[in-house]
């Protein structure tokens, strides 16, 4: 029982973080807060991959005469790419936020929808 809990603890925490990010994205109306929620979600996925790549008693995947067991390098490679792509999407999201604020004067989702409805009504 304890072994199962310790063995799966990382995955469970990853799921908690994932759901925290998911919750922020669907509940919060503020667009900056939504981007932050996406970031929480993203980092939890990174942790999931890196956790799967770990080998008990292994060392970082850099050749060393004294080491015979290395951690799996493939998740690291995937996640390096994902981190860089993640910052690109974050930057794009934030730039859109700045533009939305400029056009609508607010960052709250429901107020933006209200303004949109009003504009539709005028047309």
């Amino acid at each position: 029982m304890l072994e199962t809990v310790l063995g799966l603890y990382n995955y469970w925490i990853v799921i908690v973080l994932m759901m925290a990010g998911f919750y922020t994205v669907i509940v919060r109306g503020n667009l900056v807060k939504k981007v932050v929620g996406l970031n929480i979600f993203q980092t939890s996925v990174f942790l999931l991959y890196i956790t799967m790549g770990t080998v008990e008693g292994g060392t970082a995947p850099i050749v060393d005469a004294g080491a015979d067991l290395y951690t799996n390098p493939l998740p690291s490679v995937l996640i390096l790419t994902a981190i860089v792509v993640g910052i690109a999407t974050t930057a794009l999201g934030l730039a859109l936020t700045v533009r939305i604020r400029e056009s609508y004067g607010t960052l709250e989702e429901d107020e933006i929808i209200e303004i949109e409805d009003r504009m539709d009504g005028e047309v």
Binding site: T43, A60, L80, I83, I87
Partner: peptide, 19 residues
């Protein structure tokens, strides 16, 4: 820091700098 504990040092560097 978590990535360092999990032996993924390259990811840790990138996350500290970028994230």
């Amino acid at each position: 820091s978590m990535f360092v504990v999990l032996d993924a040092v390259d990811v840790a560097f990138t996350e500290a700098a970028v994230g």
